[in-house]
Design a protein around this nucleic acid. Structure first.
Lengths: 339, 339
DNA sequence: TTGTAAGCGTTATCAG
DNA sequence: CTGATAACGCTTACAA
């Protein structure tokens, strides 16, 4: 492989001068610079990151450690956000998946160490509280879509499930819906409770009685192997005597079954029954007919801002507050109408 | 950071001996080994990959260059397969997305070079023929889910769309379906033609006339911004006088609209109309009610075997044939019944 | 403005 | 079986 020395020879200068040109340092004649640049081009020289790192002891690399994110369809946008930021800022990204194993997690931290990673983004697929097995390792870390169980040593950045569900509920209430069905997310998920609370609270603010809300459990059990009650729950809600005019789904995926349940009973969407989702998982929300009104999880921005934040932490900034929350914007499509 | 030298001092041996222990080389007394290992543990020593690489000139790193794969829900399993292999074999993975920009692609190849990557996995989200802008760079490469336009310099590994569609068609024909609707994938995709050909050919083999097949275009236009005719096409097919008893969908996602179209017309699935998908995109195929019978794209194995293959290429193996194809297995669920 | 020399943490070579 | 020493490609410190 062609090294800085061959370039120096070809250009008739010292290796240090080549280094200066490569790193855009000042104090190089325009003429020398051009000569060096020509030599670089002619020889096809590409700097060796490993050598650079070993000397400067900064790897310019961030690690992403995640449960399943990068291998699961749901939250890939977090990774995209991180990559875009890294890309724009000349950082390299290393991704590793724990797949839920804490043994594997320990291995990953070691691996990160051996690559002398500058910082870590700890990302989870579902928003949740975690207890990272970092062990003795101390690398600057920012948590994305999750937060630490114990002390707030590490900054975290999360979606605002509460506000998202609030907006969605208001959207319905402002369109005259006074009886609303809600099919709950798996209670294991942190978002489940927040979303449900928001629905309840907002309904109350608009003067609804608790009995105006038909709340049913949609899923239950360990993530990836849950029991699915959505279809049955939707069917039951829709067959009530004084049935709701709108159903809120714990997420977009569950909305598929609500659509099907509604149609099986002969209801038209949205004329007979309005439906909203949550997440804006587009493969579903845009494939449904009519397209689904939902609240978008700010995954891309979570990743982008998480990376940016980590960069600041690595640089030594002490940033407050150490917990940040990003809005879930309402995406209005065609599954809701006024009553 | 604690280096090999501090360990050597602590253990009272030379750096080379430490190196031997770390790399599991022979010719070290059991006793010496233990002393070194203790020192390593006590000091929390972790080898520096960059230093190792600089000396041995092998990075033990593979690069994944992809259009959108790792940032898009569809084919993340390819990446998972690669990561699992890498993980089991002590390789590091660098992922970069071109997002379709060939300018960006050139940058990525440079980046890979500067990390002295051992090999590249060129992965695409949809199966297609590509023309990699590797430029002058020559790193061992294996193509996954795609193949080169020109010479077959690079090995490729792809799903067998033809066989998958064939199995699906047979599955229907063997259950007595004699009139079949087919809603086509976007013709831009390589899989579209293969799947359609398989359907036509298989139907003919079973003695069906061309008129027994109702073939309609489901999508059209640039990927990511296509026109969607699925609902209309399904509705039209189902309203024919002598309507099909089964509809095959170009993929699982499109099947959502076929379900909805069928239900809107009052058909029950599968009693009145059987439906099959393609891909086994589980967020859809398992969320539908009844769950969708489909053919599974072998994404995980594509990744796993692609990585393994690349490893052999890097090691200098000349492997024939240079094009490999993996089966799309039929996944039988509940959306088909016999007539 | 440019060059020399040392050193980063490893592995390779070869001698003991 | 073990160790001294060179070498990898680069940056840093300092000298010219």
């Amino acid at each position: 492989m062609v090294s800085i020395i061959s370039v120096a020879k070809a250009a008739g200068v010292s290796n240090k001068t080549v280094s200066r040109v490569i790193n855009g340092e000042p104090h190089v004649t325009e003429e020398t610079r051009e000569r060096v640049e020509k030599a670089i081009r002619d020889l096809g020289y590409v700097p060796n990151m490993a050598a650079r790192q070993i000397r400067s002891s900064r790897s310019n690399t961030f690690g992403i450690i995640t449960d399943y994110v990068s291998t699961t369809p749901y939250s890939v946008d977090i990774v995209r956000g991180i990559q875009d930021w890294a890309n724009a800022n000349g950082k390299t990204i290393l991704i590793a998946n724990t797949v839920g194993s804490s043994e594997r997690e320990a291995t990953i931290w070691k691996m990160f160490q051996s690559h002398r990673i500058d910082g870590v983004l700890y990302v989870t697929m579902y928003r949740r509280i975690v207890d990272p097995a970092a062990g003795d390792v101390s690398i600057p870390t920012v948590m994305v879509n999750c937060r630490p169980q114990t002390a707030e040593d590490w900054p975290s950045i999360e979606p605002d499930d509460f506000q998202g569900a609030q907006d969605l509920t208001r959207h319905l209430l402002e369109r005259g819906h006074r009886k609303i069905g809600y099919i709950r997310l798996n209670p294991i998920l942190l978002g489940a409770e927040l979303r449900l609370d928001a629905v309840r609270q907002t309904a109350r603010e608009f003067g609804l009685a608790d009995s105006d809300l038909s709340i049913r459990l949609g899923m239950e059990g360990p993530v990836g192997a849950e029991e699915n009650y959505v279809f049955a729950a939707a069917t039951e809600i829709l067959q009530q005597r004084d049935r709701p005019t709108a159903i809120m789904s714990g997420n977009d995926e569950m909305a598929i079954q609500i659509y099907i349940a509604a149609m099986a009973l002969g209801f038209r969407i949205p004329q007979d029954i309005s439906i909203v989702g949550f997440d804006d998982f587009r493969t579903v929300s845009m494939a449904l007919k009519p397209q689904l009104t939902t609240a978008a999880l700010p995954y891309y921005d979570l990743g982008l801002q998480g990376a940016e934040w980590l960069n600041r932490v690595v640089a030594g900034d002490k940033i407050r507050p150490s917990r940040r929350v990003l809005a879930c914007n309402l995406i209005e499509r065609d599954s809701v109408c006024s009553v």
